[in-house]
Design a protein around this nucleic acid. Structure first.
Length: 520
RNA sequence: GGGCGCAUAGCUCAACUGGCAGAGCAAUGGACUCUUAAUCCAUAGGUUGAAGGUUCGAUUCCUUCUGCGCUCACCA
């Protein structure tokens, strides 16, 4: 444990303290030159990209004919000084550009300012374009100033930041120093905007529903919620675990096509695929069926691959995945039952199921899966078959393409409409890609009596220890009693889709500030 | 929550079987007007994550704690 009342600036090492002090002196020296080290009001007229667009690969003599008058600003990433000249590597919003400062081209004062420069400072330069004899497009400065003085050093220039923890805690440094990080988050933004454009173009309305839920509202998924409290109302609240139930209320209210892109919270474990807060898109379309949404999903993911990754085939962790429709379909009950050596009929009826699960568990003997199968034997037939699919079916899903898992048992889907042809199943699908569940969709249950029964089953499950079972949402049933048109809905995990589109191994690499433990 | 692993200068990493804690980059001072990890000379920088223990001696071995990573379970 450290000093509980550390001095401001916390536990700096001597080197760091010296750097801060030295740079503070430079800031004062800038003020003495009439430069506010934290000034504002300087607006660059160009981006580094403007010079590249203008000159491209043009040779030096051609650039010399029309060198232009350019004005850029950005962060200094590297300085290569030569006494009376220097090359600066500057990064702005559009890329990087070299700036060349020469004592005989800038004013004496500007050269004094340059001498107070540190790597990490935000600077502005004006001047003409040129190409150096090593061939690099360069802005040859005629005016130079420091806009913001950086007081702390950037990470080491060769290796950057390799301490994963520091990358997440100080993401601003990660963005500056680690190649590709910036691009990942640009692609994340493009993923969201592509989805938004896709749905807007199909007549969907974007809405926002509460993230603070009363205890009875915090359903829509199987998960444990975070708990919080409103002081003025003295009200216990939970953070939402899904947007589903409010969005369907809106379908009842006449918004036939709605979606919400938003943060949800689930109070569960953290690993490569899970962060306590993450972003989903849920959308609901009246008069559509799960079958319709499969078509829509194929079109959407194909569009995402093209728009975000730039090609229909995306390589994720060394595995190319072809997002060109159509995607193969795999039956959960068939594969699950077959894995247990049973017919679908016997499995759904529970005939021989316990014995088959025991046999399968024994086959798996020491592995973790055995335990999962043994637990499944205590649940309903549908849940047991789903468990068998998880253990035996999921690893066999196609890896070079996304795949739809279809034919879900009723018991695993408390908000899904029963299938007319077989009421033990629901018209539901999950989209798997890259070994992850990326989307989950179904024809929505709009029979209020059936919904009531499903909620009752959930309450019973909760009473017998299932902490992830949903609460009974009376108002939601009331809404259904007013009549919800036949509807299909879908949820997509934005973070996981972004992982695939950016080839990121961990969900933390696509969340700017993932949750970490507090440091003392 | 379980298992495995990691923590040394601001950053990236060394330090043999327990024997004076080092290097590169960054920094500081100096030289240098075409560099791309610029180069050259010099200097400074450490509670080896924390607390205990074993030992003549601990970065190294042991215990506990903290944080992080991987993995398993739960989950999307």
């Amino acid at each position: 444990m450290r000093d509980p009342n550390p001095p401001r600036g916390d536990d700096l090492g001597a080197t760091e303290r010296e750097i801060l002090a030295h740079r503070a002196k430079k800031a004062e020296a800038l003020r003495a030159l009439g430069v506010n080290p934290y000034g504002n009001g300087h607006r660059p007229e160009h981006l580094s990209k403007d010079l590249r667009d203008r000159y491209g690969d043009a040779p030096a003599d051609e650039i010399a004919k029309d060198p232009g008058a350019w004005s850029i600003a950005g962060r200094v990433l590297a300085v290569r000084p030569f006494g009376k000249a220097a090359f600066l590597k500057i990064r702005d919003a559009a890329g990087e550009l070299q700036v060349w400062i020469k004592k005989d081209r800038v004013s004496e004062r500007d050269f004094e300012i340059y001498k107070l420069l540190d790597i990490g400072d935000i600077v502005a330069a004006q001047g003409a374009a040129t190409r150096t004899k090593t061939g690099e497009l360069t802005l040859e400065a005629t005016a130079f100033t420091i806009l913001t003085k950086s007081m702390r050093p950037l990470p080491e220039k060769w290796h950057g930041l390799s301490d994963v923890e520091q990358r997440y805690r100080q993401r601003y440094l990660d963005l500056i120093a680690t190649p590709g990080v910036r691009d990942t988050f640009v692609k994340r933004a493009r993923t969201v905007s592509t989805i938004r454009r896709f749905l807007d173009g199909r007549g969907y309305l974007e809405v926002e529903t509460p993230t603070l839920h009363k205890p009875e509202e915090a359903g829509g998924a199987a998960a444990r919620p975070f708990e919080t409290h409103h002081n003025a109302l003295d009200l216990s609240l939970k953070l939402r675990i899904a947007t589903e139930l409010h969005l369907k209320r809106l379908v009842v209210g006449g918004f036939d096509r709605v979606y919400e892109i938003g943060r949800i919270w689930r109070n569960e474990g953290i690993d490569r695929r899970h962060n306590p807060e993450f972003t989903t898109i849920e959308f609901y379309e009246a008069y559509a069926t799960a079958e319709d949404l499969m078509k829509l999903t194929e079109a959407l993911f194909h569009a995402l691959a093209l728009e975000v990754a730039g090609a229909p085939v995306v390589t994720f962790q060394g595995q190319p995945i072809d997002f060109t429709p159509p995607y193969p379909r795999v039956s959960l009950v068939e594969v699950g039952a077959r894995a247990l050596g049973l017919s679908v009929e016997d499995a759904l009826a529970g005939r021989g199921l316990a014995e088959a699960l025991a046999r399968a568990a024994a086959r798996e003997n020491e592995s973790e899966d055995a335990w999962k199968l043994e637990q499944a034997a205590k649940r309903s037939p549908g849940e047991a078959i789903a468990a068998a699919f998880e253990v035996f079916g999921e690893p066999q899903l196609p890896k070079d393409r996304p795949a739809f898992v279809v034919d879900f048992p009723l018991e695993t889907s408390p908000l899904s409409r029963r299938r007319d042809a077989d009421p033990r199943l629901v018209d539901r699908f999950e989209l798997f890609a890259g070994g992850m569940e990326c989307a989950n969709a179904f024809s929505e249950l709009n029979d209020p009596a059936d919904q009531r029964a499903r909620f009752e089953a959930q309450v019973k499950a909760r009473a017998s220890g299932d902490e992830e079972a949903m609460p009974y949402d009376e108002d939601f049933v009331r809404a259904l009693e007013h009549g919800m048109p036949p509807t299909a809905g879908e949820g997509i995990g934005i973070d996981r889709v972004t992982m695939i589109l950016t080839d990121s191994a961990s969900i933390r690499d696509v969340i700017l500030f993932p949750l970490l433990k507090t440091r003392d």
